[in-house]
Write a protein that binds this DNA or RNA. Structure first.
Lengths: 170, 170
DNA sequence: ATATACTTATATCGAATCGATACATCGGAG
DNA sequence: CTCCGATGTATCGATTCGATATAAGTATAT
């Protein structure tokens, strides 16, 4: 997953390690550690997806190779572990994907969230009428899960609507 | 963190490994893997916080020791890495904490979420009026962060209000 | 009855990630 | 001039993950 993030960020422009950490952090959902980042850069370099060039001072600027660009394309279409983080990552780089494939990504996510919502509602209602009803704190946790999933779907629907009108208007 | 989760779950009643995974998963925010769980059980056993007793069939039922109970108390009050997961875990076991200390946990969380909200709003507004404005997908991500943090604070405020009236009514 | 497949259950492996720390340079504040 | 915080690369040990192995019980279908 970090490979995905790094390649996505390097697609825009070459960056050095520290800057990658900052840029990824600024996306808001992943404060990656150096202990993950630097080994990942080695990994990607060894695989030929990125190249190190010496930048100003101590900096090592990494830039994507053609193979790396192809790899990013693969990751954008193929992989999907269903995690929140991966979806957010995919969304951050969705502009890289051909427009006709974008809606599918959003709709797949919507299906996954619907499933999650059903599960969350089921366990909330189940717990409420259970013999050994969970305490109010655990009930609150379940309610939060229902509500935040609903909110996420609503947000996603706006995004989907925007995508459709962008497609129509083009 | 897994230690915290295991001790919290074992406080209610003895459980075997597979059951712990299920119970933790049912809390809704962490699908822990066996590759984390079984080593953690060894770890806790070696430290004397839990004890294995043979249960039905292949099962190994683990129960908490007195030292383990004390350790859970420490984890409930001391540790706080500010992560969402840790808060949710703490909340799931908040009933274990003496009532007079519960409100503080919720209020600390509220402060942390307020900080997060300010950060999220700042980067959203900053990006919107930026020279190189992020694409609509990244803008949507930022907006999501703002909204979901607001929703979380609203949910937490209900919980805090409930806690206050419970304290007053007691 | 018996093959098939799913759930329960414990366990381990390698890889990814984390949090802490080390170390060095640079710019600004006191 | 010196101290301090931000920048920058790097590594260490511990934790966690995802995949996989193994095997027993249980239900379903043939």
């Amino acid at each position: 997953m970090l490979d995905f993030a790094i390649l996505g960020l390097l697609h825009d422009e070459p960056r050095h390690g520290y800057e990658l950490k900052r840029a990824l952090g600024e996306l808001g959902f992943w404060q990656v550690s150096f202990g993950s980042l630097y080994p990942a850069l080695r990994r990607l370099e060894k695989q030929g997806f990125i190249e190190a060039t010496k930048g100003e001072g101590r900096r090592k600027a990494y830039r994507m190779t053609d193979t790396g660009d192809a790899r990013l394309g693969e990751l954008l279409t193929d992989s999907d572990d269903g995690s929140d983080r991966e979806f957010q990552l995919r969304l951050a780089f969705l502009g890289r994907l051909e427009p006709q494939h974008r809606l599918g990504v959003l709709e797949d996510r919507r299906t996954a969230l619907q499933d999650r919502l059903h599960g969350a509602r089921r366990s909330f209602k189940g717990a409420r009428s259970s013999a050994r009803k969970p305490d109010r704190y655990r009930m609150a946790l379940m309610e939060r899960r229902v509500r935040s999933t609903e909110a996420d779907i609503a947000w996603l629907d706006e995004l989907i609507a925007g995508e459709r009108s962008a497609r129509a208007g083009a």
